[in-house]
């Protein structure tokens, strides 16, 4: 797992704002191996989504850049599929059609109609959504929508799967369920995954490495924690596992001691200027845990 699959080199980005350029990220360097599961964690507004968007090609880094298999990333594409925080399904299409749109686009000319059909159904099966193929997004729950979003991304057979707080808007139970599903799928398909999260348990449970980001502006990578827990991982068995708790502690200590977010010093409008609506569930308080 040493080959360089995805490489971020000296990535920095400035956003033009009415009050002059705003430097969101600086000196972001990260190398990710094929099949690795990496999570990005950091306080709300530090620039996690921005990193993901740069890898996705939706934003262009001001300096530095991203290499995927040695080729520069300069535009969005299905080989870097994105699972958006709020599912982003097309509300006028059914579950099946939403995945179909992606499959048709990616496999046009490579798969026959029947093969596509099978592939769509297979991917929806992976996320346990076979029972709702012909339901529209407004007819299924938030967790199901997120599953379909994941199925759509998986169906593109991406080289890198990018997930922006995929379970952030879900209740704890549904989230646990989806995390388990994701681990199963990951064990099966061995995708390279970058996942943004604000949930420390989620990060430790799912990741091979946890990338912890410092607070912005000019955010960068603070520490990288390698999680060497054996797989498959079981959340119940891990609850009392000393190693697991050690990792948790490390992340918590980074977030709440080293990168403690001092709200008083942050001008209010700065948080308001970020996509505060989307990131309302950001890390503000340590998660209470029994």
């Amino acid at each position: 797992m040493n080959q360089k699959h995805l490489e971020l080199t000296q990535v920095a980005i400035e956003f033009p704002t009415p009050r002059g350029p705003f430097c969101a990220l600086q000196n972001v360097n990260l190398t990710i191996a094929k099949g690795e599961f990496v999570s990005l964690i950091g306080h709300s507004g530090c620039g996690k989504s921005t990193v993901l968007n740069i890898v996705a090609g939706l934003y262009q880094a001001t300096t530095g850049g991203v290499l995927l298999n040695g080729r520069e990333v300069d535009e969005p594409g299905p080989e870097r599929a994105v699972v958006f925080q709020n599912h982003s399904l097309l509300p006028w299409l059914t579950t099946y059609q939403n995945v179909e749109l992606a499959v048709k686009q990616v496999f046009r000319g490579r798969k026959t109609r029947a093969e596509m059909r099978e592939w769509i159904e297979h991917n929806l099966e992976l996320v346990h959504m076979s029972h709702a193929l012909h339901k529209r997004p407004d007819e299924i729950s938030g967790g199901m929508k997120q599953r379909v979003g994941i199925a759509r991304a998986l169906a593109m057979e991406p080289q890198v799967l990018l997930m922006d707080e995929p379970f952030g808007a879900l209740d704890a139970l549904t989230r646990a369920h989806l995390q388990d599903s994701l681990m199963e799928i990951q064990a099966d398909l061995k995708n390279t995954v970058i996942m943004i999260t604000h949930d420390v348990d989620e990060a430790v449970l799912l990741s091979d490495r946890i990338v912890m980001m410092t607070n912005g502006p000019s955010a960068t990578i603070g520490e990288i924690l390698e999680v060497k827990l054996p797989r498959p991982r079981n959340r119940i068995a891990l609850a009392d596992n000393a190693e697991y708790n050690h990792y948790r502690h490390q992340v918590l200590s980074f977030l709440y001691e080293k990168q403690r977010k001092v709200e008083e010093l942050q001008p209010r409008r700065e948080t308001a200027a970020s996509d505060a609506g989307k990131d309302a569930s950001g890390v503000d308080e340590p998660k209470a845990r029994a």
Binding site: G57, L58, E75, P76, P78, V82, F84, S88, L90, L93
Partner: peptide
Amino acid sequence: ISKDLQNVSKVLRLNWVTHIRTIVIP
């Protein structure tokens, strides 16, 4: 049109006809 749906369209690299038909008009 929601930014997210536009991003979906970009990630999928929909051509403009498909983009208009499947995203814009609905």
